[in-house]
Design a protein around this nucleic acid. Structure first.
Lengths: 358, 358
DNA sequence: ATGGATTTGTACGTATGTATC
DNA sequence: TGATACATACGTACAAATCCA
């Protein structure tokens, strides 16, 4: 066989050598010196041939060790998973993100992180960006999950392109994408039950209703009131949305406390519970003497203040981990994610609930 | 500038040459001979540099004609910035990450996020991954920044490949990479000053010393003690490292409190201050009656407990934003990041410091 | 069409540096 | 610590492709 040059010939020979000996990825090749002697060429020529093979992705070299057969599968695109959350820094989200990162980096994936600040336009831009990037998988925490979603088109495209997608914390009813969630209905229920068990009969609630979690917790609250024969006064069920949080706390919630219309309060989450504590203290009341509180998410907030808030556990890291596992399983083994994964919830008792005497 | 080898340097120079002269695809580069003479290297070295650039798709060569600038559009890549932090979910890091994300997404970049958990091996893996991904820019929060860094090689490669890099919170002395930081020396100083101004003369300190910030804060503490004529008892300067935090708090710090050896304490950060509060309460003391505390970082922790901790402000979001701006400016306009950016610090007063009567 | 100058490609030699075991 | 193997870098010579007078 006539080759254009010695190094081209050598390159061919080495490729044949790998094939003929059935060398697996990672197998060591002869050293430069050995090639040099065996084929009676200069080391420069050997290095040129090897260098070209390295650029082709057929071999790799390690200083001090030798040259090795490369893994052809690693030539493929870098593995990446997109993550879209409503917030990055707030509250429990960093823990969820950490759970995801820990899990996917174990399998060699990178995380592309974007946040929507609970804004639908930003959500659209984020999904679009993920599509452009052609990510291998996508984990999304839905924006304002309780409302009709205007970005359905984007999500349908994900399906079309065959990009495995999973939601966390909530899901969109209109779109058939599975979700990893907590059992928020049950959470709302056991929050009320805790107060009922402590003989409270006058129980208010503060709920965010622009996400699925808030709505579910509210439903659980209502169901428990019904089951335990608690009459709920609609004035004491205070609901808010992302944008009206501040004013709602300042007006409706403040009024409820000032007038002491209830003895027990269920809060949408610990952040709200924390703000509620301030309102209670400002009005000259104390916890749990005047008000008993049960909250949700069991975040760092619930254990930082001296009035430790009883709160319904949210798995956080675990939730992120589970979502990551499902996505990776879907990417690598084609496992289909057609069912939701629901985490059980339980109450973590602290010192914010007082037993009333009858 | 320090480069690992001549050909890497030359490779960098040629890239700069293309950028600085605004060469369009197809423009002819100087000949190998010209480079050889101009930079006083062998032709072999020039050819190696050009060969690498060819493999990267930056230039192409034609025998008998010369070397030319390649068309980058044929491999146009999505814009991405790598972010490596020690932790994702803990403490102030989510805020820094948010600051970065907000800023870079404005300019159409995606964020690749990895965490090191303050482990050098993971840091190496992370930088390696970023190199493989060929990110457009990199923001790194150094791991154990007070120690000699074993990953210098990785960071030099970043320079060689011309990937703009900036550090946040700290920097490695051995590597010439600029950093966005807070003035931690000054922070430590004003923390002591606050206690001195309130007539404390017996001032202890708890510092983490495996990162630059902790060391600087400790230096500031010492300098202030010296300047204000405070005698410091070395038993009351308690230092710890990431791994020994728990045991140090449990033993040394607990002893200092139990024996009430000091009246004022400067804490490395709010997390430590928060743990310190627990130790103080467990020993039957209260704040600020028995102990006055000044802490660092002004995080959510400092304002969540009923004993609100006076703390030296850390810019958090702003720091992330600034780092992102510098990186983007460097990527898009070739601005060079040769100087550190230092944020001023100031004390946020709360209720953890009591004025002593003389 | 051709020869000479230019420019990159191939090839050999030698020495020393650096990473790994 | 020495031996091994790849990396860097200097040198020389000639071949092949291109361009132009």
């Amino acid at each position: 066989m006539d080759f254009k040059s010695k190094h081209e010939y050598l390159r061919y020979v080495i490729k044949e050598y790998i094939k003929d000996n059935g060398l697996r990825p990672g197998s060591k090749l002869p050293t430069e010196n050995e090639f040099q002697q065996q084929y009676d060429v200069s080391r420069h020529t050997v290095r040129l041939a090897l260098s070209n093979l390295e650029n082709e992705g057929i071999i790799y070299k390690e200083q001090g060790l030798g040259s090795f057969v490369a893994d052809p599968s690693s030539k493929k695109k870098l593995k990446e998973i997109g993550v879209i959350t409503t917030y990055i820094s707030d509250y429990i989200f960093p823990y969820i993100i950490r759970g995801i990162e820990t899990e996917i980096s174990k399998s060699g994936y990178s995380m592309i992180l974007m946040s929507t600040n609970n804004d639908r336009d930003l959500e659209k831009k984020a999904v679009q960006m993920m599509l452009e990037r052609n990510v291998d998988g996508l984990i999304v925490e839905p924006t304002k999950s309780a409302y009709y979603n205007h970005n359905i088109g984007m999500y349908l495209k994900l399906k079309e392109y065959g990009i495995p997608t999973i939601m966390i914390n909530a899901k969109y009813d209109e779109i058939d994408i599975s979700s990893v969630m907590t059992d928020d209905y049950h959470s709302g229920f056991i929050a009320v039950k805790e107060l009922v068990d402590n003989h409270h009969t006058n129980i208010g609630g503060i709920f965010k209703i622009d996400d699925r979690q808030g709505k579910e917790r509210l439903k659980g609250y209502m169901a428990a009131c019904y089951e335990f024969g608690i009459e709920y006064n609609s004035d004491n069920i205070i609901v808010y949305e992302t944008e009206t949080m501040q004013s709602t706390m300042h007006n409706e919630v403040n009024a409820m406390i000032k007038e002491a219309r209830v003895t027990g309060i269920v809060c949408y989450n610990d952040k709200i519970a924390n703000d509620l504590l301030d309102i209670i203290f400002e009005n000259g009341y104390s916890i749990p003497k005047d008000f008993s509180i049960v909250s949700h998410d069991n975040s760092y907030i619930s254990s930082l203040r001296t009035s430790l808030i009883s709160s319904v556990e949210h798995p956080k890291d675990e939730l992120g981990k589970k979502a990551a596992q499902l996505i990776i399983d879907s990417i690598e083994n084609g496992a289909d994610i057609s069912e939701d994964y629901i985490f059980d919830t339980h109450l973590v008792r602290r010192t914010s609930v007082r037993k009333l005497e009858d």
